[in-house]
Write a protein that binds this DNA or RNA. Structure first.
Lengths: 234, 234
DNA sequence: TGCCGACTTCTTGTCGACAAGAAAAATACA
DNA sequence: TGTATTTTTCTTGTCGACAAGAAGTCGGCA
């Protein structure tokens, strides 16, 4: 494991953010899978910080729901709540629609540039068949759209939802094929066009369809996976 | 000021939540107005706790955006962002609609009972002309509806929005008259009926109108207030 | 051999103290 | 007298140590 962070001496106040962001990434990328125990002492050693700033980072992660603290006992990476998946899909779909609508309505020139950058990144990830890259650049693309919509409440919720989605997708990413992503590139391009032309209705419609695609795909992964499990159980 | 909390000895782990909730309430009720400095030492004395648990509570509040920490300098109660008000209204309206829709679709029997309790509380606040009570019971009423909708993402965002709304309303509550609240009681009753009858479309429509009412009212407060300011400036 | 209770150990929660950084105050200089 | 610079002071950020609580361990007893 990479332990370079051990050596650097942090300047006052920077350590907490570093720990927070590092752990956040590791949780979302399933480097720390759900249920993993989070040991404060261990992190303290790893980042060469006392437990106090570590603790602060953990409190932040807990506030976001990424980790769960069993009082006086242990703190673990939060499980993916499969029972709550319908809620998740509902909220995700709504955010796809709302942010794309708002982007069509409120975007400035510079926003389009930012969106195009992310779309390019997504495209290269697709051509390189870099599945993990697809997942994260897809997220960045939609967050760029959300930011163009100029509503921080939606941006915040959408970010959380997309990151939760990244965790779920990672679980199933082996079954990710390169047929649908290719289709996503086209859909993304259509969405950009609708946004540029400020066609709110079309943007909404495309976002809605796009969301359905993704939700459908995740659903199929899950059902396919559970089928495999039942096969093993026999 | 009430200093009773000073004496009790807290059992392990309970102190943080107490501090968090107490401060949260005081911020939302403008007992701690925007810009108020938050002194850790002072809070430490007040709650008879060391600075560590106080700090933990503050981190949580900061994550929610209720307080702002100027690094190495000071931490203050977050200002109300009047420039971001349009975003706020947009998100608030959407959440009013979505939660009411979902309540109509997903509610169970017990949810209705909970909603009716809150509606009763709101009604008594209105008849008692208890303006502060109206503001908070109105919030509780809509959160009860959101909970009946069974989507924790919406519940969470909506709660944050309604609480931010409480702060804004407190600022202007002197101009709160008892004509519109009476109307709100009726609108609430209509919404409950639509939810009970599982009429999603009607629920949406009513929630939308209700949101417009409230947004309009807040807007009128603000413009009325700014008019007064310009008058003084002449 | 199986179950119940005291004990040990390990992790979290809390504390008091120290260090660093920034604003305010005091001082020196033009 | 006004400005730049140093010093002081105050608040936050970090630390190491201690205390409490819970799980696991070990031993005793039926």
């Amino acid at each position: 494991m990479d332990e370079t962070e051990k050596l650097q001496t942090h300047r006052r106040g920077s350590g907490v953010s570093t720990v927070y962001e590092t752990l956040r990434n590791e949780i979302i990328e399933l480097k720390l899978p759900p249920g993993s125990p989070i040991d404060e002492q261990q992190l303290s050693d790893r980042f060469a910080l006392s437990r106090t700033p570590i603790r602060e980072a953990l409190v932040r992660l807990a506030a976001e729901g990424l980790i769960t603290t069993l009082t006086n006992r242990a703190t673990i990476v939060s499980n993916i709540d499969f029972l709550g998946l319908p809620e998740f899909f509902d909220a995700l779909t709504l955010m796809y629609r709302v942010t794309t609508r708002l982007a069509a309505a409120n975007h400035a020139e510079s926003d389009i540039a930012a969106i195009l950058v992310q779309q390019k990144a997504f495209e290269t990830a697709v051509t390189n068949r870099d599945v993990l890259g697809m997942i994260s650049t897809n997220r960045d693309f939609h967050i760029a759209i959300a930011q163009a919509g100029r509503n921080r409440y939606y941006v915040e919720l959408f970010t959380r939802l997309l990151d939760e989605g990244r965790r779920i997708l990672r679980l199933y990413y082996s079954s990710f094929n390169d047929v649908l992503p290719r289709q996503y590139v086209g859909e993304h391009e259509e969405m950009i066009r609708a946004i540029v032309e400020r066609d709110v209705t079309l943007a909404d419609k495309l976002a809605s369809a796009h969301a359905d695609q993704i939700v459908g795909q995740i659903r199929s992964y899950i059902t396919a996976d559970s089928r495999q499990n039942t096969k093993l159980a026999l």
